[in-house]
Nucleic acid binder design. Sequence first.
RNA 1: GCCGGGAUAGCCUAGAGGCGAGGCGGCGGACUGCAGAUCCGCUUUACGGGGGUUCAAAUCCCCCUCCCGGCUCCA
Length: 474
Amino acid sequence: MRVYNTMTKQKEEFKPLREDEVRMYICGPTVYDYTHLGHARTYIAFDVIRRYLEHKGYSVLMVMNFTDIDDKIIRRANETGEDPKELAEKFLKYFLEDMKALKVKSADIYPRVTEHIQDIIEFVEKLEEKGYAYGSSDGVYFEVRKYEKYGKLSKVNLEDLRKGARVEPGEGKKNPEDFALWKKAKPGEPKWESPWGEGRPGWHIECSTMSTKYLGESFDIHGGGNDLIFPHHENEIAQTEACTGKEWVKYWLHTGFVMVSGEKMSKSLGNFVTIRELLQRYSPEVIRFFVLQKHYRSPLDYTEEGIQHAKNNLERLYNTIENIRIAMEKAEIPFKWEKEEFKLYETIRDAKKKLYEAMDDDFNTAEAMKPIFEVANAVNAYLTRVEKPKESVLRKALEFFRIISEIFGIFEEYFKETKETKEEELIDLLIEVRSALRKQKNFELADKIRAQLRELGIQLEDTPQGTIWKRINV
RNA sequence: GCCGGGAUAGCCUAGAGGCGAGGCGGCGGACUGCAGAUCCGCUUUACGGGGGUUCAAAUCCCCCUCCCGGCUCCA
């Protein structure tokens, strides 16, 4: 398996530090607003990466932090007149709801800044002891020039940084590139006791502290959106490696942005679509499928048309799975295989190989789409061509889609244990009644039954072999 | 200015030296009371422009055009 490492700017063989275990830390959101598609893209991408690693047999320990106190939260709270703590609490809850709706598996640990203040203080103290931090009138800063490897992730160099002069020269900073480890509280701001007076942690220190607390001084994957590379992750590296003297993270993974008419979707630009809004119009699986049709590192254009494409694609796959399920009921015991069975079997076998090759190559979900459709085409063609399908090949096709379901987090409905047998019996009964009506050419009433069932999410389809029904999930 | 990422058939998305890429949409046909699903065929000499290397270039090298991102809060 190969993964692209932002640190080395190339794909590398993936070998976790401990055999069979992957420890990953994903930068979570600052909870001051609704989750939008940009966030969802990142978290769905890492969800699939995590699912795939688990599918490959790794034990995955996944940590995602919440920034539940910071300047933006305070500012937003001031604007709305809410208490910063309550504001953060509210959006944190919404975030978790959104992730659940999108079928993103939960992290194992969700550490919050406000619950790790003591750990952060201890971390800053260590940096002070080692001479990387200095106190000033408005807080404690990290002295960037003392860490000679600064810039190794984002490839910025200090000279350019200073020349650019876009780094804010804060009040108490010695150098413009230094960044805050601890900020002293201004009147009315949330605050915690510390050796440097009452205040709050700087933004970057939380990830260093909480990741090393839960995953150790070195771990495998650190991920987040592309926009975190500089300065966030660069600063995290400086702090952590200055403190421990060890290589902190083995693989740095970053997701591409979601774009809206040529611009990055972001809270500050205000051009974002919230997940809540999107879920009103599209199912979670359509959103996942839309995101996964593009490689996680590439920019993803958000357009209505694009999501509609994803919906059409997904519908086709749903239909295929339903077709298999229905065919299974009349499938034959495979006393012998003909050419058609071998052909389908081989297509599935090759598709499985292609699927793993695509995913092994830096989690290329876009490439992985191809074998999925190859199987869909092949199995549909098989079902139209063959009068008596063989149970065993259909099972292989179904198993293929079950693997996709597990890795991509889609087709959930089809692979659940269903307990709605009563409902199914009732549908069968209605189909029977409708068939009788159709024989009597009472199409008006027959169509009414079909239309009303459709409203309930049950689609009837008349085929030469009789009427079949499907659930509509989109 | 500095550092990155791009331009692939009507549209969306992969690929990265040699086997007509996958999907969507559109059109035609099969099936059908209608609808839906599915199948078959077509849309198909695809790779921003110009040079070069090579038996062979979307792919490697050089130049150019255009788009986007980061360098400041961001997933």
